[in-house]
């Protein structure tokens, strides 16, 4: 499966949308999950690398479709394993969104060069001086 294919029906996407906003509402200057389309292309992207999440998420959706009302606490306590998979799916979709990542100043994929060895070692030697001053602390066995 690639990220341009989908495994979700429109009805399933509706449930995913509702669920995603329950899990990830807007707040702290961040959008709600549905505002960035976490239930749309986001979930397709996630499923292209995490096919294992599809089945449990679909199961949860099917369960939720049977219920009139559902709250977060209900879902967490009644379907803990399915919930975990659906939460991974939706949070994954949310954080893959470029605007979300930018707003969080999330930049894990860039490379960070190291300071020169001598600078780093000198700093560590200064910081560890009190540890060294206390002397050896292992239990002697010989």
């Amino acid at each position: 499966m690639n990220e341009n294919q989908t495994v979700w029906t429109d009805r399933e996407r509706e449930v995913l949308k509702r669920l995603s906003d329950l899990l990830i509402p807007a707040g702290a200057g961040m959008p709600a999950a549905s505002e960035v389309g976490a239930h749309l292309s986001g979930t397709d992207k996630v499923c292209s690398v995490r096919t294992d999440l599809v089945e449990p998420a679909k199961k949860l959706i099917a369960e939720l479709e049977q219920l009139q009302e559902w709250s977060l606490q209900d879902i967490q306590s009644r379907y803990p394993v399915l919930f975990e998979a659906a939460a991974e799916l939706l949070a994954g979709a949310y954080f893959l969104d470029e605007d979300v990542a930018r707003t969080l100043d999330y930049r894990e994929q860039i490379t960070i060069p190291l300071d020169p060895e001598a600078t780093r070692t000198a700093e560590l030697q200064e910081l560890t001086a009190p540890v060294v001053a206390k002397g050896n602390i292992w239990r002697t066995t010989v």
């Binding site: 329950l22 509402p25 707040g27 702290a28 961040m30 977060l72 967490q76």
Partner: peptide, 13 residues
């Protein structure tokens, strides 16, 4: 999960 999701993420990250 829920109301404080984004606050918590910001606190932790």
């Amino acid at each position: 999960w829920g109301a404080r999701f984004n606050e918590t993420i910001r606190e932790r990250l």
